[in-house]
């Protein structure tokens, strides 16, 4: 394989590996901008992946599977909201709890319903989101440089991939160009002021966590019925935390979130590619370096060495109206 083919193949898998991160990081963007920490992204993604696979398997329809994933993910969000907004509980504790519930419940229910050690049966045909070949992909393949890039990186992805990239400008528009977005950001900075203006802090924050649940549903469906063809135990494998890292790395802004997710996806793809290969002069580079790199980069950023990552001011603090 010559160098250019390798680049195309790595870029292709970068896109595929970034999509769940992107949906999840945008989900986190909504809640954290509204002042609700969301450690539970991982759990929501996992629960949604399981629900999507179950529904898609039973109905044979990928879109119904997606809806199932979104519904379950939103239920998890509402529990998080009930604990951390209504009951003013510790938001981090609530997120941690939901991660455990999701990690356990998916396997327990999967085993009880399908008896395959926590897996769901294979979903096939219309139950999956299959790659879409964009027009002229085959015709363009012969064109140098642009051809293979178009055919293998831009074309040949499933519909959720394109939706993920569409979600970035939509998120930006909602957060920065609508009244709802302005209020949502305000509630993450100074809920007291929003309350004084006669706007319900509670209802705004609930809408933020519901939006997060909605987006995590897409991430889960992508994992189980687009990227793979079944739910596998613990298939989110820490992606929710990487998404959280990406969100911080992007300093809580939508477009940088996309680039951060692509960067972390690229690191993942590159690690897969480098597995067992020797670099001339250095020898074999351990894959663990690439696995740890997103976290190391985020810590360096948090330390304030690459600009300042300033989180929303009211993040993590429950709003108490009455003293």
């Amino acid at each position: 394989m010559d160098f250019f083919d390798i680049v195309v193949s790595i870029l292709g898998s970068t896109i595929r590996l970034s999509i769940p991160l992107l949906f999840t990081a945008l989900a986190g963007l909504f809640t954290e901008r509204a002042g609700v920490f969301d450690i539970g992204l991982e759990g929501k993604m996992l629960a949604a992946a399981f629900a999507s696979a179950c529904v898609a398997y039973l109905t044979g329809n990928a879109w119904l599977g997606l809806c199932g994933g979104i519904a379950v993910s939103i239920i998890f969000s509402l529990i998080h909201g009930f604990a951390s907004i209504t009951n003013r509980g510790n938001q981090i504790v609530s997120g941690v709890a939901l991660n455990f519930v999701a990690a356990g419940l998916t396997v327990v229910l999967g085993q009880a319903w399908f008896g395959q050690g926590g897996r769901t049966p294979q979903v096939s045909g219309d139950g999956r989101f299959t790659p879409i070949i964009l027009p002229f992909a085959d015709a363009m393949r012969e064109v140098p440089v642009i051809g293979p890039l178009y055919a293998n990186v831009i074309s040949g992805n499933n519909i959720l991939t394109y939706l993920a990239f569409l979600a970035v400008p939509i998120t930006w528009w909602v957060l920065f160009r609508t009244r709802f977005g302005l209020r949502l950001r305000a509630v993450g900075e100074n809920p007291g002021a929003v309350d004084t203006a006669g706007i319900s802090v509670t209802w705004l924050r609930y809408r933020a966590v519901i939006a997060a649940g909605f987006l995590c549903g897409f991430a889960g469906a992508y994992l189980s019925i687009a990227q793979s063809a079944a739910f596998i135990k613990d298939m989110s494998a820490g992606k929710g935390y990487i998404a959280l890292a990406a969100l911080i790395f992007a300093k809580w802004k939508p477009v940088p979130v996309m680039f951060a997710c692509l960067l972390f996806g690229f690191l993942d793809a590159f690690a897969n590619f480098m597995q067992g290969k020797a670099v001339p002069g250095i020898g074999e580079v351990p894959v663990q370096i690439f696995q740890a790199l997103p976290y190391i980069l985020t810590c360096i950023l948090l330390a304030g060495f690459i600009g300042v990552a300033r989180p929303p001011k009211a993040g993590g603090v429950a709003y108490t109206k009455e003293r």
Binding site: N90, V93, S94, A97, L98, F100, V101
Partner: peptide, 10 residues
């Protein structure tokens, strides 16, 4: 998870 949820967050 449920213990953390009810004894912690709730």
């Amino acid at each position: 998870g449920l213990v953390i949820l009810f004894a912690g967050a709730l």
